[in-house]
Design a protein around this nucleic acid. Structure first.
Lengths: 214, 214
DNA sequence: TAGATTGTTAATCGATTAACAATC
DNA sequence: TAGATTGTTAATCGATTAACAATC
């Protein structure tokens, strides 16, 4: 099953469909056509049908798509109920904020351990979990199968520990806030980089070039 | 000046060039060829030369590019020293974390005001600035020209106040963490959306489909 | 059945890569 | 001058859009 290669462009649109379908569902709507969904999302109906047909025929000719069913299908494709076993590495400002404000369970992740190297934090409870010493991470990963990590540590920390994370801990997915380029050394793991700085600079460019928009 | 339209793909790569050139500069290197930079960044030399030539000829045949000069040029294009006057709207968990951990001045932004609607926060100092009442935002924007806003508020708050931000306050750029789709109603302003959930779901998909990577 | 809308193939558009003449 | 590498044009590739036959 599921052997066809799907382009990054398509995959990146899936969460957006998921989000729109969710809000439509909440309004009580039952069905929607690709053209109406396209209208609402500001994209083309062709694109929607092409995207969905990468994964199968979820619609019905003459009718459209059942909103609830379609959302469920996309959720299944994305794996939102997989509960991937995940550790948070780095419980500083950002790590704490993410731990507290994101509904990981609804996005396919299950946080099972939180680690930091700062002694003062050990034992503090976040999201119902105690902050542990980063020194215990390898042991923890040997005892618990860990799928993914949220990396809220500085560049240098990431660079120094990536071998341990990938090779010793066996972690295969990284939500990476560290700016360290993990895929350069380990192209085989899944990495989702979040570059706040890049995002900000892009915004700056756009603001100062608003005149040439569209 | 600067009238040519530049595609989003190109713009999004500029901060990355900026970042790489910065680290090269710090190693003491003086010059680099497009092919060596390409090698290091994992992209093609053609792409680098194409991208740079959207903005002008920054290199020299037979020599390559001067690292410091090129970085300065890209910084100028991105506007990293523009110091856009910016307000932070929403000083909860996320807002506070961003305020404390991001070097806005180095990315073209200058935070001049912080606002929240939660009374308990008023007067608290963040980044050397007092948290003010969201009720005072409009007045503040009339007294101070404000270019951009960092929106760390919930969807509903954003939906309820966007008219004020754009029309009354005259804000033209948004670093948007609210999930509210600003461009749908105001296509004329610059928006950089940060969707943590989408990013997470993409990662989940990738982890569970690692077998079909590459 | 007639109308609507999908699934899918073909056409277009844009972005990336390759090639090479210009030139330092 | 010869060698290297850019700037830029042409070729390729992939993604988006358009079209339409299939079918509910």
């Amino acid at each position: 099953m599921g052997s066809k290669y799907i382009s990054t462009s398509v995959i990146r649109r899936l969460p957006r469909y998921f989000r729109f379908l969710n809000s439509l569902k909440q309004t009580g709507m039952i069905r929607i056509s690709s053209s109406e969904l396209a209208e609402r999302m500001g994209i083309s109906a062709s694109q929607i049908r092409q995207d969905l047909n990468c994964f199968g025929g979820f619609g019905q000719q003459g009718y459209g798509y059942n909103i609830e069913k379609l959302q469920a299908e996309i959720g299944k494709i994305l794996g939102v109920d997989r509960g991937l076993k995940t550790v948070l590495i780095g419980a500083g400002n950002l790590g704490q904020t993410l731990a507290q404000s994101i509904e990981f369970e609804k996005r396919g992740f299950n946080i099972i351990g939180i680690f930091d190297k700062k002694e003062a934090l050990f034992g503090e409870v976040l999201r119902g979990l105690p902050i542990r010493s980063a020194d215990d991470l390898e042991d923890f990963c040997k005892e618990n199968h860990v799928d993914a990590a949220i990396l809220c540590i500085p560049f240098k920390e990431a660079a120094a520990n990536i071998d341990s994370y990938v090779k010793t801990c066996g972690i295969r997915g990284f939500w990476n806030f560290s700016h360290y380029n993990i895929n350069e050394k380990y192209p085989e793991v899944a990495v989702e980089n979040v570059h706040f700085n890049d995002s900000l600079m892009t915004l700056c460019y756009r603001v100062i070039n608003l005149d040439k928009k569209d």
